[in-house]
């Protein structure tokens, strides 16, 4: 078996050299496609991260009915704290709220002359564990009898979410199209070497090579194209991402960018393996077609 593997690799290199120009074209194509693929992966991950970070900083605010006593309010606070998904509940009594409000605006408005009684309700500021839970938690809090109203900036988050969704959908469409185009080019590249080696294939079959055996050198040729394209796009993407991160965190320090090395290496790995897979598939398709029309 070892001598066969050696044979496959030597044969693959032969093909590689024979159609050097077309091979270069295939490598460049696969590199471009993989870089775009990686770019989209990183963009989606970063946008998701931004949405997640902002969303988790957002609080729900629940307003009670005005005439709730402080004791009852304390009981409600406990109840809210026990709801699933709730991380923290902060209570602000209506007196505190009124004092703060007057402190903020009183001097300008001469409030005491217009409003004699505190018009504000008690409020609860609720933080959820996971921003996805916001709508659910909001619903269960507003279901409580003593709660008049629940507010959270769900619209903003929903908009950001749908934007991420749109980018993701566009990315998937683009990546699928690019993969198909890449596959087509790899298939045609390797088909050239298949044609150039028709006699070799004929002789191999004549002397009793199995189809699997005939296919391997071409599959390996595809894998080599994929590996080279994968490594090239990895280098391009890593260098540009690292420098982009530096510039973004200098210019927009509040923007959370993904710097988790494990996640980044995972993205690079997925990208490179996609290249290897595309190359392998391309080699397989082109040689299989050549082997099909025989008795």
């Amino acid at each position: 078996m070892f001598s066969s593997i050696e044979f496959f690799i030597i044969e693959a290199f032969r093909s590689f050299r024979r159609s050097a120009l077309m091979t270069m074209v295939a490598i460049v194509t696969i590199t471009v496609s993989l870089t775009v693929f990686g770019f989209f992966l990183l963009s989606i991950i970063n946008m998701g991260n931004i949405v997640g970070t902002f969303a988790s900083r957002l609080d729900l605010v629940a307003y009670t009915s005005k005439d709730l006593s402080l004791e009852d309010a304390a009981a409600v606070q406990l109840k809210i704290g026990k709801l699933p998904g709730v991380e923290k509940v902060e209570f602000t009594s209506k007196t505190e709220a009124w004092k703060k409000f007057k402190g903020d605006f009183g001097s300008k408005l001469a409030l005491e002359e217009i409003v004699h009684e505190n018009p504000l309700p008690h409020t609860f500021a609720v933080r959820v564990r996971n921003p996805d839970m916001l709508p659910v938690v909001a619903k269960s809090i507003s279901d409580l009898e003593v709660i008049d109203e629940v507010r959270y900036s769900g619209k903003l988050i929903d908009q950001m979410r749908s934007m991420v969704g749109a980018v993701r959908a566009a990315g998937i469409v683009l990546v699928v199209l690019l993969s198909l185009a890449t596959l087509l080019i790899v298939v045609n590249t390797i088909r050239l070497t298949v044609i150039a080696r028709e006699t070799d294939i004929y002789i191999m079959k004549l002397v009793g090579a199995t189809n699997t055996f005939v296919k391997w050198p071409f599959i390996i040729e595809g894998i080599m194209i994929g590996v080279i394209g994968g490594i090239a796009s990895f280098i391009i993407l890593k260098l540009s991402y690292d420098s982009a991160i530096m510039q973004i965190s200098a210019a927009l320090p509040f923007l959370p960018v993904v710097t988790d090395q494990r996640l980044l290496w995972f993205v690079y790995l997925v990208m490179t393996m996609t290249g290897v897979g595309l190359g392998m598939l391309g080699g397989y398709i082109s040689v299989s077609r050549a082997l099909k029309n025989e008795p």
């Binding site: 078996m1 001598s3 066969s4 044979f7 002789i203 002397v207 009793g208 055996f213």
Partner: peptide, 26 residues
């Protein structure tokens, strides 16, 4: 139907290679 880019030895060994025979046997 000899393969032009291979030596005489390679042309003959080729028929054994494709059967996956070990190198010493080839």
């Amino acid at each position: 139907k000899l393969l032009p880019k291979r030596t005489v030895y390679e042309n003959v060994a080729f028929a054994l290679r494709v059967t996956g025979a070990p190198r010493s046997t080839i």
